[in-house]
């Protein structure tokens, strides 16, 4: 591409290769500066608003916070030690693990079920929109609505009391045993649609021939699904699972809005716990340590994704 224009008609033996190399280097350096020019707004904004805070956050997690004076004292690992001994942290961690476990299985399972059922049906388009519809509500707005659905005198209880023929006043969002499952249901209502749409896109890419061949040979729906569709759909499933697991680690809006009156709100997830410790109790250094723990987990999952993706890519090729 970078062809020297005025190549002297010379004996190749005498050609000065280093001159061309130098020219090439200069060319590349010039492109680099042009490219950096184009990239600079992005680099500056991202570095200042995203990367610098992450580094600063890690730093704060190693300090002690003096009320009204600042992070003026090096604390070493003391914040992390506090984490380990705190029952609230273990509870928040346990609840986060529940969220992750649920996100690992349910969105993809329900989404896949609906997607496979819908595939090729006349109502596919309409149904697709219906299941996707909750997604267009903001998580906060959906949380507010579900808050009233779950209220002791709310819709859910009034429907239940229709069946039991006596008043039901379960406080779904007030009991330790029901609060997380209730929020999870609302969360799934909002997120399954996305999983379903992505899986439908994946299904559309599955070649028809093997399906038809299997069908002609009299295979049942389940057999076709299990032995033909599922293996071909694996890459899509992986993407969906990873997306929902990462989302599961960082659910905040739904819990924050729906559990606002639950006394143990701070222990409902690591994200909520971090927020409360920082902005409600001003334990800034301690909260930074929680954020770092969360960051390490999320990065590990991302890393796992890269490895898995790589393996699946090689498997399918």
């Amino acid at each position: 591409m970078t062809s020297p224009h005025n190549m002297p008609d010379a004996d190749l033996q005498q050609l000065d290769f280093s001159r061309y190399a130098e020219q090439e280097r200069r060319e590349r350096r010039r492109s680099m500066w042009t490219a950096l020019g184009f990239m600079s707004p992005a680099i500056i904004l991202v570095s200042f608003f995203l990367l610098y805070p992450v580094a600063y956050n890690v730093y704060i997690s190693f300090t002690r916070w003096r009320r009204f004076t600042g992070f003026d004292e090096w604390g070493g690992l003391s914040q992390y030690q506090r984490l380990l001994g705190n029952p609230n942290f273990s509870e928040a961690m346990a609840n986060t693990i529940i969220w992750v476990g649920v996100s690992l299985v349910l969105p993809v399972a329900i989404g896949l079920f609906i997607a496979v059922m819908l595939r090729g049906q006349k109502m596919e388009e309409t149904a697709k929109s219906i299941f996707f519809l909750p997604r267009v509500l903001a998580p906060t707005a959906a949380g507010v609505m579900w808050f009233y659905v779950y209220a002791p005198d709310g819709v859910l209880n009034s429907i239940l009391s229709f069946f039991t023929a006596e008043p039901v006043t379960i406080g779904w969002l007030y009991n330790e045993s029901t609060v997380t499952p209730s929020i999870i249901v609302a969360y799934l209502w909002q997120t399954v649609g996305l999983a379903m749409v992505l899986l439908l896109l994946g299904l559309a890419a599955v070649p028809k021939d093997p399906l038809e061949a299997a069908s002609v040979e009299g295979a049942t729906r389940w057999q076709i699904f299990r032995h033909v569709t599922l293996p071909l759909l694996l890459p899509t499933i992986l993407v969906v699972v990873i997306l929902s697991v990462l989302a599961g680690f960082t659910v905040f809006d739904h819990i924050w809005v729906m559990a606002r009156d639950f006394p143990g709100k701070r222990t409902l997830s690591l994200t909520v716990y971090m927020y409360v410790e920082a902005f409600d109790r001003s334990s800034w250094a301690y909260a930074s340590a929680i954020a770092v723990v969360l960051g390490v987990i999320v990065l590990s999952v991302t890393w796992l994704q890269v490895i898995l993706q790589d393996r699946i890519d090689r498997m399918t090729k």
């Binding site: 680099i43 608003f49 960082t250 920082a278 954020a291 960051g295 999320v298 990065l299």
Partner: peptide, 16 residues
Amino acid sequence: LIFAGTIFPFQMYLIP
């Protein structure tokens, strides 16, 4: 460098 801006959980940005 630019892409690194998407991989951290939001909680790591809040306090700083």
